[in-house]
């Protein structure tokens, strides 16, 4: 818990808040990117290189770009007239609160278990790779299957449209 942590945490929180509160949707997306970057830097600060770089690669390199693309393709970059809050903001708040509660509960529950270890073990990329393809190979494959299914689905959707217009 040093200065760097607080700066990065502040950056992340500010980015997140800006993503919710800003008027212009593209600004929101960029603020979200800042939040992602802050999170990645937090991982790096904890010496979790792989997680940090994967966070940048996936979230800034892919997710943020995807969000931006979605905004531009749906003409959402103009500021809506009736404010940034949708009508269902109460429900959204409830969901967000529920997610936060679950995550917070999980963190608090696992905190005592962690304090027993004296120092964080140094995890190399090698070990992560071995773990992913050894012990956790089944979850990995399931995720891969899911993503492949999504990819195939996307291709089918795209092809369908093409046939219709011909």
């Amino acid at each position: 818990m040093n200065l760097v942590f607080y700066v990065l945490a502040g950056l992340t929180v500010l980015g997140g808040l800006a993503a919710v509160l800003l008027k212009n949707t593209v600004h929101c997306a960029l603020a979200l990117t800042v939040a992602f970057a802050g999170l990645a830097l937090l991982f790096l600060e904890l010496d979790a290189q792989f997680a940090g770089f994967a966070q940048i690669l996936v979230y800034i390199g892919a997710v943020a770009i995807l969000v931006v693309f979605a905004i531009l393709l749906t003409r959402g970059s103009e500021t809506p007239e009736d404010g940034v809050f949708s009508h269902t903001w109460l429900a959204g708040l409830a969901v967000a609160a529920a997610v936060f509660a679950v995550l917070g509960w999980a963190v608090i529950q696992s905190a005592p278990a962690l304090t027993h270890e004296s120092a964080a073990p140094v995890v190399t990329v090698n070990q992560i790779g071995n773990a992913l393809l050894g012990r956790y190979v089944l979850p990995l494959e399931i995720v891969a299957l899911l993503l492949t299914a999504a990819l195939v689905g996307a291709v089918i959707v795209a092809m369908h449209e093409k046939e219709e217009t011909k």
Partner: peptide, 10 residues
């Protein structure tokens, strides 16, 4: 290598 690609992505 991961660092390189993640920076390249940004």
């Amino acid at each position: 290598l991961l660092f390189f690609f993640s920076i390249g992505a940004s």
